[in-house]
Design a protein around this nucleic acid. Structure first.
Lengths: 238, 238
DNA sequence: CTTTACCACCTGTCTAGACAGGCTGGATTT
DNA sequence: AAATCCAGCCTGTCTAGACAGGTGGTAAAG
């Protein structure tokens, strides 16, 4: 299972990460890849397409595919990558302090700004957490999770990883998430939890996670210390 | 030319924008699209794949494709969308004030933070601009453009649109751009040009635009009034 | 009345082959 | 020596068909 093209893409990414191909090197041509992996050319092309939109390679008509970016490791700003797993994978010293875990209705703001058709007031579990990275309180996370999708959340789960719970234990398939980044003055709670002084600013990411059946089920806001916030992205023209 | 699947994707996007399909509606099935547009199913699938990674539809195995997002209009933060064109298309009142246009060597910071292999000191044209949106000075833009790729830039061009000049007049193909968003205290120049007081913050986007042959040629930093900054994105899981 | 089996329709993946068009280097011509 | 042509390699696009697997409704079996 998992598809041949997935396997080829992973293998190529792996070989790039391990220095078999460096930035500026050409990958084997599509026909060579097709022969080597014993697949059709279209299948090899799908693997290259995946690397292309991950920003790892650039294809040039008439020439081939060139490696343009080594592996990058940035703090994931979106909740679409499990924060907890990422930190563990990269050996970053982090702690997770749950300061709130209670039932609450879904507030209209700030989520209606992302999806104006949203109906507030639905029953949710509210999880409030502080992420402490390298001993420094860096992020305040507010999560509202629909009780109709996830009935209960234990303190252990909130402390560990919500995403593991959703996907591994509940079998939910998280599919996509529109998100937004803004900059706001730190409120009293930010100041207290992150140890900021008055007049400080925080970088705020707001997102709504959707399941594969398009149900919006998790409404999140992360408020980052401005001096520790760095968001990286890769844009392709048209 | 331009490809059948491009045409189908554009047509479907157009039909969604014009209300023929609303959020929550199912699109015709792949076989129906293939029949309707007189193409093979794989070609219809390519069109749907394009809409999928633009975040317009969600595909569900065994069911079909559902519309998940109406047209979105957000200020483009990346230089990969022509700022000038966007503003014009959306009828936003804007002005463009060129406060600097001169030769300058490429500075190491902040661009080495995005690409550590970069060699600073190369001959560039430096363009400094203030974007005035709805009568309010909102963004300070700093652009360093390699003279080896773009020998000269006139004040008219800087005032109008650099991207039109690069693509239409010079025939350059802009391909991709890694970018980064951070939050910084406003410096003296920010304060002066944007009318901010001391202790204010700005949202900073830094990017390096590359041509299709992977040449890095434009190094940009945009410094946004924090209260007017809003970045929107769409993330898919895995 | 409930469960099960089946079937029609859907998306996901893969194939082998075709043609168009970009790129490069070497051979041929000027 | 310079310009031209061309063959061979490359990516981009498209096709018709195949099989796997998810979904939902209907009809048969319990």
């Amino acid at each position: 299972m998992a598809g041949k093209y997935q396997h080829i893409a992973n293998d190529l990414a792996h070989r790039i990460n391990h220095g078999e191909f460096n930035v500026g090197d050409m990958l084997p041509s599509e026909n060579q890849l097709a022969t080597h992996y014993k697949v059709s050319r279209e299948t090899a092309r799908k693997a290259l397409a995946k690397l292309t939109d991950e920003g790892r390679i650039q294809k040039m008509m008439g020439k081939g595919s060139i490696v343009i970016k080594p592996a990058r490791y940035t703090l994931p700003v979106s909740h679409l990558v499990s924060y907890t797993e990422f930190l563990k994978d990269n050996g970053i010293d982090s702690e997770n302090h749950v300061f709130a875990l209670e039932d609450a209705p879904l507030p209209a703001m700030p989520f209606q700004d992302i999806d104006p058709s949203l109906t507030p007031g639905q029953k949710c579990t509210y999880v409030g957490r502080v992420r402490i990275i390298n001993k420094l309180p860096s992020i305040v996370d507010h999560d509202f999770i629909l009780k109709s999708v996830v009935p209960t959340i234990s303190e252990n789960t909130a402390q560990a990883s919500l995403y593991n719970y959703f996907e591994d234990d509940l079998g939910l398939t998280i599919a996509y998430s529109p998100k937004q980044i803004t900059v706001e003055p730190a409120n009293a709670q930010d100041q207290e939890l992150l140890g900021l002084c008055e007049g400080s600013y925080v970088a705020v990411t707001t997102s709504i996670a959707h399941l594969a059946d398009t149900t919006a089920f998790q409404f999140s806001q992360s408020r980052h210390r401005a001096d520790k916030f760095k968001y990286q992205d890769f844009a392709r023209r048209k």
